[in-house]
């Protein structure tokens, strides 16, 4: 018991030090009255340069498009690592031990409900990322909604196997198209991931803001398939 007490005391001491820093930060914090230089630039120029109503989308997809490409890459790598780590040695754990436990059959209500709701959830996800440049939402949110539709399918029928090949194909194609649009922007417009590849159009219409709806839809598909593959790999290990 004694070393644990000392460990806890050290932890509390450390927290007190961090807490003191936080308190001084909080006491010295003054909310800005004006937008700072970067934010002012984005607020003034987004409508005419990018043509999106949602300024956060303009920053994520165009102003900082390269960062988003990096983020999607990080997400892809972590999904790949989850799949790799869980795939290793899965076969040996399946062979010995208890035979397959009989599962409680899924109720009529759940199976019918999931069949009814999943297409609607997928539709909501698609709506969210297609309208990402006009309303709150976008590729990441829409992708997460699509993945939760997949989650509903998994919960209604735990033995269901998603086709990993299909998920991989959707993911690779949308990633390739994302980079391809970026390179086309380099060739035919102002730079990598420039959205002025297509006409900007009028602010507030669905077909406006150049290629932003296209890019955000691709991000949505890519993120949705990555999350789905993470969920599928984590749930498939359950059957051992």
């Amino acid at each position: 018991m004694e070393p644990i007490m000392i460990k806890n005391a050290i932890a509390l001491l450390l927290l007190a030090a961090v807490g003191a820093i936080f308190v001084s930060l909080l006491a010295g914090y003054m909310p800005d009255e004006q937008l700072n230089l970067t934010a002012r630039y984005y607020a003034e120029r987004t409508a005419q340069d990018i043509g999106t109503a949602n300024i956060v989308t303009a920053i994520v997809v165009t102003y900082r498009g390269l960062d988003t490409l990096g983020e999607v890459t990080v997400l892809f790598i972590s999904a790949a690592i989850v799949g790799l780590v869980l795939a290793q040695g899965r076969l040996p754990t399946n062979v010995p031990g208890s035979p397959q436990q009989p599962r409680v059959p899924v109720g009529e209500l759940l199976s019918t409900g999931s069949r009814l709701l999943t297409p609607l959830i997928l539709l909501l996800g698609i709506y969210v990322f297609v309208n990402g440049h006009l309303t709150p939402g976008g590729g990441f949110q829409g992708g997460a909604i699509i993945a939760s539709g997949m989650l509903l399918l998994l919960l209604a029928d735990p033995l269901k196997h998603f086709s990993h090949r299909l998920i991989d194909v959707i993911e690779s194609i949308s990633g390739l198209l994302f980079v391809g649009i970026g390179v086309l922007g380099l060739l035919y417009a102002g730079g990598f991931l420039d959205n002025r590849l297509l006409p900007i159009g009028t602010l507030g219409e669905l077909f406006s803001a150049g290629v932003i709806p296209l890019i955000y839809s691709l991000i949505g598909l890519k993120v949705g398939s990555e999350f789905s593959s993470m969920l599928a790999s984590l749930s498939e290990t359950e059957e051992a």
Binding site: A43, L75, S78
Partner: peptide
């Protein structure tokens, strides 16, 4: 200011990847 929001959007998504 829209910049912190764009930043946090990224952070949440990466957070799920790290948690997984």
């Amino acid at each position: 200011d829209p910049v912190p929001q764009a930043l946090v959007l990224t952070a949440i998504v990466i957070g799920l990847g790290v948690t997984a």
